[in-house]
Amino acid sequence: MIDFFNVINHKSYVVNIEHITAINNFSQIAILNNGRECPISRRFIKELTEKYKRHCRKF
Rank of each mutant, 00 (worst) to 15 (best):
M1E: 13
M1Q: 04
M1P: 14
I2Y: 14
I2T: 12
D3S: 14
D3E: 15
F4Y: 15
F5D: 01
N6A: 02
N6K: 14
N6C: 07
N6H: 06
V7S: 10
V7H: 08
V7Q: 02
V7M: 00
V7W: 03
V7N: 13
I8W: 12
I8E: 15
H10M: 10
H10E: 14
S12P: 02
S12Q: 13
S12D: 05
S12V: 11
S12W: 08
V15Q: 01
N16Q: 11
I17V: 13
E18A: 14
E18N: 10
E18Y: 03
E18Q: 11
I20W: 04
I20Y: 05
T21N: 03
T21Q: 11
A22L: 08
A22P: 07
A22V: 04
I23H: 07
I23Q: 01
I23F: 10
I23A: 01
N24G: 09
N24I: 07
N24T: 05
N25V: 12
F26D: 03
F26Q: 04
Q28G: 10
Q28F: 01
I29M: 08
I31W: 06
N33K: 11
N33A: 03
N34R: 11
N34P: 06
G35K: 06
R36Y: 12
E37M: 10
C38M: 06
C38N: 08
I40P: 00
I40Y: 10
I40L: 01
S41H: 02
S41D: 09
S41V: 09
R42M: 07
R43M: 09
R43D: 11
F44Y: 13
F44I: 07
F44M: 07
F44C: 10
F44G: 02
K46M: 04
K46V: 05
L48W: 04
L48A: 02
L48H: 01
L48S: 03
T49M: 08
E50Q: 13
E50V: 02
K51E: 06
Y52M: 09
Y52I: 08
R54L: 13
H55I: 08
H55P: 00
H55D: 06
H55Q: 06
C56F: 08
C56L: 15
K58M: 15
